[in-house]
Nucleic acid binder design. Sequence first.
DNA 1: AGAACAGTTCGGCCCCGACCGAACCATTCT
DNA 2: AGAATGGTTCGGTCGGGGCCGAACTGTTCT
Lengths: 224, 224
Amino acid sequence: MKDGPDIARIASLIGDPGRANMLAALMSGKALTAGELAREAGVRVQTASGHLTRLEEGGLIARERQGRHHYFRLADTDVAGVLEALMGLAAAKGQLRTRTGPRDPELRRARVCYNHLAGEVGVMLYDSLRARGVLTGEGDDIVLSDAGRAEMAALSIDLSATSRSPECKSCLDWSARRSHLAGRLGRGILDFTFAQGWAMRPEGTRIVRFTAIGEGAFRKAFQV
Amino acid sequence: MKDGPDIARIASLIGDPGRANMLAALMSGKALTAGELAREAGVRVQTASGHLTRLEEGGLIARERQGRHHYFRLADTDVAGVLEALMGLAAAKGQLRTRTGPRDPELRRARVCYNHLAGEVGVMLYDSLRARGVLTGEGDDIVLSDAGRAEMAALSIDLSATSRSPECKSCLDWSARRSHLAGRLGRGILDFTFAQGWAMRPEGTRIVRFTAIGEGAFRKAFQV
DNA sequence: AGAACAGTTCGGCCCCGACCGAACCATTCT
DNA sequence: AGAATGGTTCGGTCGGGGCCGAACTGTTCT
């Protein structure tokens, strides 16, 4: 068949346990060396080297040579997003082997997923918005209520359609196994949070680090 | 030894070209049979059957047995979300393959399913009968209401038990992925439609071709 | 009843790719 | 310079799993 779909190629790259472990280790956003990744995957360094070459050719990771070290990181946020979605799905299917989620407590707390807020803070925000009636609807089909739309407008949160993504969407959280908010609203809120200076994102990571004042302001603004 | 959800297991399920093709075909939201999926994947039906059981065990798809057909659909929206994310990532590098829609538009419109009416017209009929209270009941367990029974009797629709099939039964539609009406009532209505000369069936096909007048009469009789 | 048809199971073939030992680059340290 | 260290490449082994022919189950049609 001429349609050897790229989706299978990508998925099969992730589908090997060794490579999956390496990718999971890279989810922290840090760049790791081949040796470190070999240890993560539980294989010899030669094997890991082969895996890393394939992942690089597949466009899932990027390599940076620095002296005798080779640093690897996830290629872009799309890759991180796919991994996040896969982890959420795997966790939801009860295929969990041990406690889920990233080790780094900061990542568990708040992180970027695609372009919106994930982690404990993201889940709390989502729960609060639903409880207060800002968001309504069943299951995946959530909508912004009129009252909620007014509230977001009062905060000058941008909901303009930069893409054809839906306004509201629930996204399964990897570490918490609960839903959090995606879509244009999710993006708008995260952009707003950064714009207000309530939080920042350390270079090269997916961590969302709130300032002490910022977290309070965030909680107050969204009544979390 | 490694922590985190078993992402590799899920990904490797998607990572086979045959299975990926099947999943992509199911992205339309329609429920497809094993034979159709085998054609989509470009493999023999035995191979497809093996893939489908593995996908089912992995929780990616759900199976619904209906007579001698097995209908498969994506298990839930989370699975669809993961596939979409993967397709997005693949599209960033490879070429996106577009699915060709269902073939013959006449078949899509109205056709014979066993001995009753299927296709868009069949689905509309079913929806209308339910909305009007002619049919009541939850899920597969549908019954003809007293008012409905009187209405069918007024049209002289034959509900006599020519076989041991139930009076009413919902049947999953091939092209529309929605339910339509089967059972003795479904058969009676189709027989009635032919008997009235509202529609005919071209030799050797499963198409139900309404005449212009016949379609109007049909719609009026059943208030579609 | 038998034929036709949709799916599954079984058995065997065969290839891909994961794995590791060993040898081979490349960089840094002394 | 040689030694130590981080990575890659090569060659060979081996197991998992994808594939199909054939046989079997179950349902529908005539």
